[in-house]
Amino acid sequence: MPSALRLNRIALTLLLAPLAAGAPAFAQLRAQDVSVLAGTCVNCHGPEGRAKGAIPSLQGHGAGHLLQRLRAFRADQVPGATVMPRLMKGYDDAQIEALAQWFADKEGR
C-alpha cells in the first residue's frame, strides 16, 4: 500500500473514531475534518467539486440540492446509481450535511 494512501486511511480512522464512540457528530466536524471527508469526493468529482468529463460537478449546486441528492443516494432512491449509494451509507447525517455545505461553499471560486 502506498504511504500516502496509508496516511489518508489513518487520518480518516482518527477522524471517525470519536463518531464511532458515540460523540455528537456535528461537534466533531471542524473545517479540516470536512476537508478530509471531501477528499474522497474530489477523487471523482474533481478539485473543489469541478469535474471534467462524465462525472457530474458538485460545484454550482446549492447546499440544499446537494444534501437532497446525497440523502437520496444513501436511501437507494437514485435509479442506476452504483458507487454513490455505497459511499453515502458510510456517512452519518452530520457528515452528509457538512459535505453538502462544503461543496456549496466552493461555488463561484
Rank of each mutant, 00 (worst) to 15 (best):
K106F: 09
G46A: 03
E107R: 12
L99D: 03
D105S: 14
T40Q: 07
F26Q: 07
H65K: 12
S57P: 01
A23M: 04
P56I: 01
F73H: 05
A94M: 04
L29G: 04
A100T: 10
P85C: 06
A17S: 13
V34M: 08
F73Q: 01
R50V: 09
R71A: 14
A104L: 11
D76S: 10
D76G: 08
E97D: 12
L7R: 13
D93A: 11
A94R: 03
G80Y: 13
I10F: 15
L58V: 02
A104W: 09
R30H: 08
A17E: 13
L58M: 04
S57F: 13
R50P: 00
C41P: 02
S35P: 00
A75Q: 12
G108W: 12
R109M: 12
P18N: 06
L66C: 08
H65R: 15
R74C: 12
Q28P: 02
A31P: 04
G108C: 09
D93G: 04
Q101P: 01
V42R: 01
V78P: 04
A54M: 11
D93P: 05
M1V: 08
T13C: 04
G60L: 03
T82S: 15
A11T: 05
L67M: 11
L14T: 15
G90S: 06
A31S: 14
V36D: 01
L14F: 13
Q32N: 14
N8R: 07
E48V: 05
L16S: 09
R69E: 12
N43T: 13
R86G: 15
A11R: 07
Q32Y: 03
P2V: 13
F73S: 01
L5N: 14
V34G: 06
L19S: 07
L19V: 07
M1E: 08
V42C: 03
Q68Y: 12
P79G: 06
F73A: 02
I55H: 10
P24T: 00
R9K: 08
D76T: 07
R30S: 11
G39Q: 09
I10K: 10
P79S: 05
L37V: 01
R9I: 00
A4Q: 08
D33M: 03
I96E: 01
L7E: 14
L70D: 01
Q59M: 06
G64S: 13
V36C: 06
V42I: 09
L15Y: 07
L15C: 14
V42T: 08
A4M: 07
G64D: 15
R109L: 14
R50F: 10
W102E: 04
L29A: 06
P56W: 12
T82A: 13
E48Q: 12
L87E: 05
G108H: 09
A25Y: 03
F103W: 05
V83W: 10
E97L: 06
M84W: 10
Q68P: 00
A104T: 09
K106E: 07
P18E: 03
L99G: 05
G108F: 10
L5D: 15
R30P: 00
K89E: 07
A20L: 14
F103A: 04
H45S: 04
K52N: 11
V36T: 14
P24S: 02
R50L: 08
D33G: 04
A75H: 05
C41Q: 03
A81G: 10
L66K: 01
G39T: 07
C44P: 03
T82Q: 15
A100E: 03
